[in-house]
Nucleic acid binder design. Structure first.
Lengths: 159, 159
DNA sequence: GGCGTAGCGTTGCATATGACAACAGAAGGA
DNA sequence: TCCTTCTGTTGTCATATGCAACGCTACGCC
């Protein structure tokens, strides 16, 4: 094994912290007193970011089975937060949020924002800006082809 | 609503990016060609970080029900990655990884590390170091009392 | 315009994850 | 010793997810 450089140590620290963030996010989503599950929130967020998207788009984005998204959407429709756009044309059925859906989405985001803000409590403005820039850069680097791939799996079945 | 300052915009960007990281982490954990689920990896990681911890410690750390951890541990024990420390004394049964468990843990970490490294591909060393520092600072600020709390929930049932 | 294919959504079944409640066993304290 | 409390397990249920199979519909080709 190659000697670990300082950069390696820092990269390892980054992974460690990202794991913490993910785990905490999952635990929060599971136990937060919200009516929407994490998957539900993801779906709402995707519809917000991609107006008139279809079920299959959501499935691809989160790499979920079509059936899973179908069922989740059925639940969300029953809840009255999502609906199909009526005058649809072409393949599939474009989706949109209802007013209730927007309210639920904002509620969830606001809740999370307060958590983030609390973490940033004693940060200077320029530090916050820098952190935002770094995070965005980090995520944008994930264009594609960066799915975790098992070394011994040379013929991936997905994507 | 108060006017949005630049700091607010950056904080919102941070939340957005953290959500992306969490979602991606969940999707990766679900579809990665690994034998361990995300929960399993969490448990292994906790045991690594907290040698001789017990089942109930894991449950508290990830805010999972004792029964959930018990069943997950039963599966991991069956897989041969976790075992109870034999000469236990006192309350509960301390846990440790087997050799197989260590190998599985390292495999998972290595896989994730390659993903992180790829994202950091064109970063300078000092940028990587800074990002690591910022992430650590962000997470450490989450000491406690920062669980997402529903505004209308004034009598939380947990903690 | 009619037909075949492919895309899209749904449903049946199986599995994994997780919660809650009830229970069992063991450790500690009075 | 006995009682309480902690710890872990099991029964039962709800949700999330995948796979396979099905049905519908838009599109393309003739």
């Amino acid at each position: 094994m190659a000697r670990r450089t300082p950069r390696d140590e820092h990269a390892a620290a980054i992974l460690r912290e990202l794991i913490v963030i993910t785990r905490r996010g999952v635990a929060d989503a599971r136990t937060a007193p919200l009516s929407l599950s994490m998957t539900d929130q993801s779906i709402l967020g995707y519809i917000v970011d991609h107006p008139e998207c279809r079920s299959v788009d959501i499935a691809e984005a989160f790499r979920l089975n079509r059936s899973t998204v179908s069922r989740q959407l059925a639940g969300l429709t029953r809840l009255g937060v999502v609906r199909e756009i009526t005058d649809a044309s072409g393949r599939g059925r474009p989706l949109e949020l209802t007013e209730t859906g927007w309210a639920a989405y904002r509620e969830a985001i606001d809740l999370l924002q307060t958590v983030v803000d609390r973490h940033l409590g004693d940060w200077r403005d320029d530090e916050v800006a820098r952190f935002a820039t770094d995070l965005t850069r980090f995520n944008d680097a994930a264009s594609d082809g960066d799915r975790p791939r098992h070394p011994e799996t040379n013929a991936p079945a997905d994507d």
